[in-house]
Design a protein around this nucleic acid. Structure first.
Length: 210
DNA sequence: AAAACGGGGGC
DNA sequence: GCCCCAGTTTT
């Protein structure tokens, strides 16, 4: 790579590490995203499949006992609190929103267990809105590349929005996860096999130390 | 600012 | 065995 502008590198990551969401139904995306908090992707998939095979929709989960739901998903590394929140979220959606997931950051973040990142992912994946969720992958990779230098999530969200064109925000979220899982890992990143290492400050710093 | 939630996987 | 994981809430 000879052009290392962030928007070019970001587009390359999106091209090389596409992410396909198996479901775009807002409710399922919301639940899967809550399940994905501090949890590896494989476990999230196992848990959401089990969950939806027993409780197909928001009305079923709203009526479920939190303990039953927890027993169903705990083998995939989920904790009790998450099961409780998912039931609570579902009740609110049924009672307040007539069974439909709200589509604004403000309303979404009022739901228990839904913070800024989760809400942004739902807005982005389900509602096609330009929203950049700065999760650990996006944060780590952006720092390694040298795009940002802050450690504060809110600040990095603001800075990245200035650096990257809006049309990349959506696809970048998922692609950063794939890229972060397979190459730009938290520990032992596969820098030698990394297709964009020539644009990476972390890689050039490591090279210099040898 | 820090702890708690939590089992599974990488190392 | 220890550390980390598409974070959020509570203390």
């Amino acid at each position: 790579m000879n052009n290392c502008k962030p928007e070019v590198v970001a587009a390359k990551i999106i091209e090389l590490f596409p992410r396909i969401h198996q479901d775009s139904d807002p409710y399922r995306v919301l639940v899967s995203t809550v399940l994905s908090q501090r949890t590896r992707d494989e476990n999230t998939e196992v848990a959401s499949k089990k969950l939806f095979s027993v409780y197909p929709d928001v009305f079923a989960i709203a009526k479920a006992k939190p303990e039953d739901l927890y027993n169903l998903i705990k083998a995939a590394g989920m904790y009790r609190q998450k099961a409780e929140r998912i039931v609570e979220i579902s009740k609110i959606i049924v009672e307040t929103y007539n069974g439909k997931v709200p589509d604004t950051l403000e309303e979404l973040t009022k739901l228990p267990g839904v913070g800024r990142k989760t809400a942004n992912i739902v807005l982005n994946v389900s509602f096609g809105k330009a929203a950049l969720a700065v999760d650990t992958h996006v944060h780590r990779i952006s720092n390694r590349l040298g795009w940002i230098k802050t450690k504060q999530p809110e600040q990095s969200e603001f800075e990245l929005q200035k650096i990257l064109p809006e049309e990349l925000w959506g696809p970048l979220n998922g692609s950063m996860v794939e890229f972060g899982r397979r190459v730009c890992k938290p520990v032992n990143p596969q820098c030698n096999e990394c297709p964009i290492n020539s644009c990476c400050r972390y890689f050039s710093d490591v090279q210099k130390k040898r």
